Simulated scan of single mutants.
Amino acid sequence: MISEAQFQKELELIISNAIREDVGDGDHSSLACIPKDAQGSAKLLVKDNGIIAGVAFAKMIFDFVDKNLKVETFIDDGSIVKYGDVVFHVHGSSQSILKAERLVLNAMQRMSAIATKTRVFVDLLEGTNTKVLDTRKTTPGIRAIEKWAVKIGGGENHRFALYDMVMLKDNHIDFAGGITKAIAKTKTYLKENSKDLKIIVEARNLDEVNEILQSEGVYRILLDNFDFETTRKAVQLIGNKCLTESSGNINEKTIRQYAECGVNYISSGALTHSVYNMDLSLKAI
């Protein structure tokens, strides 16, 4: 996984690029009608039900826009919220608050939706030993905050990107000439380049599971689009040789059944690519 310093850098890049995109050479609406020295306050109002996420990120945005802005927090990331709740107040320059408003709302609405969906999946697995993972099916440019939201919702992060873990999927295997060759070439590559990366290999059937098990050094086997019965057989076959992950056909109706097959992880792209933003607003007070 990426380091804390790398993750922090990603967050800073998201903020700087979003402000560049939204503000350009100035927020002329505010500059035109609000005095430069005007001071004000605003509240983050919840107009939905779910899990709030992005409070800490909002503080980063306000600090980036104006270090003199002060945030008074009432509800922390990961908390259950309902319609009418006030998450925080922000105090300071009225122009600065308005400059940050849209980015704060866009980010928090998206993050809260992801955290809420993740919490639903996590709760469905209560009592099992299976953990929920996200994927790389994220919105280009804002992966860091979407994966952060998954963590806030109680899930775990899969690899962050292509560079922090090896994942040999069907196309890699086919292009490499088969599973055994793909794994062997990968181990040689990692050794020659002094890379210490975990290796995940996708299996499409039980024969491929058996072939993967013939090679050492595989961290996790991804059971892609297996049905419940075949998943149970694969888990028994793999035993303690490496970790297991189910993916494909994962939704609220099937996730518990896959967990009960005994897999260590269940990954779902739906956590980040199929959510509806939580309704939030920033209102002057």
Rank of each mutant, 00 (worst) to 15 (best):
S3Y: 11
S3L: 10
Q6E: 15
L13S: 11
I14N: 01
I15V: 15
S16M: 07
N17A: 14
I19H: 06
D27V: 12
D27I: 12
H28V: 13
H28Q: 08
A32T: 13
P35W: 12
D37S: 14
A38T: 04
S41C: 10
S41W: 02
S41P: 02
I52W: 00
G54E: 05
V55Y: 01
A58V: 10
K59I: 12
K59H: 04
M60N: 13
D63Y: 12
F64M: 02
N68P: 02
F74K: 05
I75C: 05
D77L: 04
K82I: 14
G84H: 07
D85L: 11
V86M: 07
F88P: 01
H89I: 14
S93E: 07
S96N: 09
L98G: 08
L103K: 01
M111K: 04
S112T: 13
I114V: 14
R119H: 12
L124I: 02
E126I: 13
N129A: 09
V132K: 00
V132L: 11
T138V: 12
P140V: 09
P140D: 09
G141H: 06
G141T: 10
K147Y: 12
W148Y: 15
W148H: 12
G153I: 05
G153C: 08
G154C: 06
G154A: 05
L162N: 00
Y163T: 11
M165R: 13
M165T: 12
D170C: 10
I173C: 02
D174Y: 13
D174N: 13
A176V: 03
T180I: 14
T180M: 03
A184S: 14
T188M: 14
K191C: 01
S194K: 14
K195Y: 12
K198H: 11
V201H: 00
V201R: 00
A203F: 09
R204W: 02
V209H: 07
Y219S: 11
I221C: 00
L223E: 05
F226S: 07
F226E: 08
F228N: 01
T230I: 03
R232Y: 15
A234R: 02
A234Y: 05
Q236R: 15
L237Y: 06
G239Q: 03
G239P: 08
K241D: 05
L243H: 07
S246D: 00
S246L: 05
I250E: 00
I250W: 00
N251H: 09
N251F: 08
C261Q: 04
V263M: 05
V263P: 02
Y265F: 15
Y265H: 12
A270P: 03
L271W: 06
L271E: 07
S274D: 13
L280H: 02
L280Y: 04
S281H: 04
A284W: 15
I285T: 09
